[in-house]
Design a protein around this nucleic acid. Sequence first.
DNA 1: TATTATACGGAGGGTCCCTCCGTTTAGCAA
DNA 2: TTGCTAAACGGAGGGACCCTCCGTATAATA
Lengths: 190, 190
Amino acid sequence: MRADARRNRELLVATAREVFAEESTGASMEAIAKRAGVGVGTLYRHFPNRLDLVEAVYQSDVEELWATAQRVVAELDPSAAIDAFFDAFLRYAQTKQALLTELQQAFEKKPGLKPQARAMIESSFDLVIDRAKEAGVVRFDVDGSDVMALVTPVCTNVSISPEQSARLLGMILDGMRAGALTAPDAVTTD
Amino acid sequence: MRADARRNRELLVATAREVFAEESTGASMEAIAKRAGVGVGTLYRHFPNRLDLVEAVYQSDVEELWATAQRVVAELDPSAAIDAFFDAFLRYAQTKQALLTELQQAFEKKPGLKPQARAMIESSFDLVIDRAKEAGVVRFDVDGSDVMALVTPVCTNVSISPEQSARLLGMILDGMRAGALTAPDAVTTD
DNA sequence: TATTATACGGAGGGTCCCTCCGTTTAGCAA
DNA sequence: TTGCTAAACGGAGGGACCCTCCGTATAATA
C-alpha cells in the first residue's frame, strides 16, 4: 500500500467521524471528501460504498475505545481512569446513536462485525473495572460485563438523549463506587 | 374537503403502509404514488414531505390498534382476544421497527405525537387485559401498563429480530396466563 | 348546465450515491 | 538523479430520489 493511500485512508476515516458527529446521518459523501480535501473518487476507492465508510468509522471508534482503556489504565489512577474511560464511552455511544440505522445495516451485511466489536468493548470495560476493583475504588460485586450490561442500553435505546446518557452514566458510576467502602459481607443486609 | 381528496388521502396512507412494510425505509415517494395510481403532486399535497407521510402511517397504525382492541373485546372471548390483540401489536411493532429512524425524527418534530400515541396504546392494552383479568384468564397481579412495559422493549430494541419478537411476545403471554389458576395470596411464597 | 374553488398529474430543479476514465504521482531500478 | 510503471487521484456525469410548480381536470354549487 502506497504511503499517500494510507495517509488518505486514515484522513478520510477521521474526517468522516467529524462530519458524522456534526451532521449525523445527513452527512453526504461529497461533504466528507471535500472536508478531507480529496475527490469523491478517492473516497470511493477506499470505501466502495457508504456503508463501508460507516463501518470503518465504527471500527475505528471501537479500537480507539480499546486504546483509551489501555492508556488510562497505564497513565491515570484507577478512579480517574474510570472517569476518563466513561467519557470516551459516552463519545462512542453518541456517534453510535447518530449512525444507528446505518450501523444496523452494516451489522446485517457483516455478521462478524457486531460480536467482534462487542468482545473488544467488553475487554475494555474489564481492563478498567478490574483495575479499579483491585485498588478498592469500586465495589467487589461488579465486573466489566455487569457495567457494560448497564451502560449499553443507555446507548442502544433510541429514546435516550445525549444529555440523559451523560446523567445516567454518572449515576451508574456513582452506584459502582457506592459500595467500595463497605465490606463485601455487609452487602447481604438486603 | 372534497370527496376525491378524502378518498385519495386514505388510499395513500394505506398504500404507503403496504410499501413501507415491503421495502422499509427504502420506499420512495414516487413508488408509493405510482402504486396508489396517483401523481407525486397529489401525494405531496396531502403530505408536504416524507416525514408527514410516515407520521400519518404511524398514527393510522396506532388508531387501528385501538380499533382492534375494541373489536376483539367485543367479538371474541377474553383469551382469544388477547391472542388477536398481541398479533395486531406485533404487526404494529414490525412497521414501527421498519421506520424507526424516520419515526424518531417525526417525534422530534412533533413533541405531542409520542405521548399521545403512547396513551392510546396503553388504553388498548388496558381494555384487553382488564377484560381478561375480570374473566380470570390472566393473573391478578398485572395490568395493561405492566404488559405494555414488557412488550414495548421488544419493539423498541433494535437488535431484536421479527422472529425473536414473536417468540418473546409468546413468552410474555404464557407468563401472564401462568398465575391465572393460582389463588392471588399463594403468589407471595417467594 | 355553467361557474369556480379545489384537486390532480407529471415535468423538472437540486441533491445524493456511485462509476468511469484521463491525469498525476509514489516507489524503484539503472 | 532520472525514467518507468503500477498505483492513486480528481471530478464530470449517470441514475435515483425528494420536492416544487403550474397547466389541466373535476367535484360541488347555484
